[in-house]
């Protein structure tokens, strides 16, 4: 191997090392998450299928189509109870509207919402109740709390073991 070739191979090795180091430094790039400069209000809970059942006697036409031993004494339909979620921060409305249900059938209602809030002291008011007054027996939840949010904090509102809304432990 000539001296020139040896020199070139040495440069190649140095370049290869530099290339690998560059790759490693790109795989360890520090990135400051701008979201962490604010705080986050997070709502997360799930309530089992709230629905309203209404029953009536079957009509003659309905009974004719069914074998005698299978005729029901009443026909019932379940209707999903629409729910409304209201979130206030220091009296300002962050959200107020119906909660969408997952799927076409009557299923559990899942609430998962995230709001970016400024760090500092806040009053949080959350209301989660049926939209129709007739569904008086359905679950209704509400919460009112004062919180101090530092940058990067997550204020989590969730249900506890008794099914009541509250700030999660650790807050």
């Amino acid at each position: 191997m000539s001296a020139a070739t040896r020199a070139r191979r040495s440069v190649a090795l140095v370049l290869a090392i530099a290339g690998v180091l560059a790759m490693v430094s790109l795989s360890r790039l520090r990135w400051r998450n701008p979201d962490a400069e604010a705080a986050e209000l997070r709502l997360s809970w799930r309530i089992p299928a709230p629905s309203e059942r209404s029953c009536r006697p079957p009509t003659e036409a309905e009974l004719e189509g069914v074998l005698p031993h299978m005729r029901p004494s009443e026909v019932c339909t379940d209707e999903a109870i629409p729910y409304r979620l209201t979130v206030l921060l220091d009296g300002d409305t962050l959200r107020s509207g119906p909660v969408a249900r997952a799927g076409g059938r009557i299923r559990a209602i899942t609430v998962y919402e995230r709001f970016v809030i400024a760090p500092g002291d806040h009053r949080i008011t959350v209301g989660f109740a049926p939209e129709t007054a007739s569904a008086a027996e359905a679950v209704a939840m509400a919460m009112d709390a004062d919180v101090a949010a530092a940058p990067g904090d997550v204020i989590l509102v969730a249900t506890d073991d008794t099914g009541r809304l509250g700030l999660s432990e650790g807050r």
């Binding site: 520090r30 990135w31 962490a36 999660s168 807050r171």
Partner: peptide, 14 residues
């Protein structure tokens, strides 16, 4: 820590 927003993260560009 799910109750903290990660402030500084080491990203892998690739």
């Amino acid at each position: 820590d799910l109750l903290r927003l990660p402030a500084e993260v080491t990203l892998d560009v690739f």
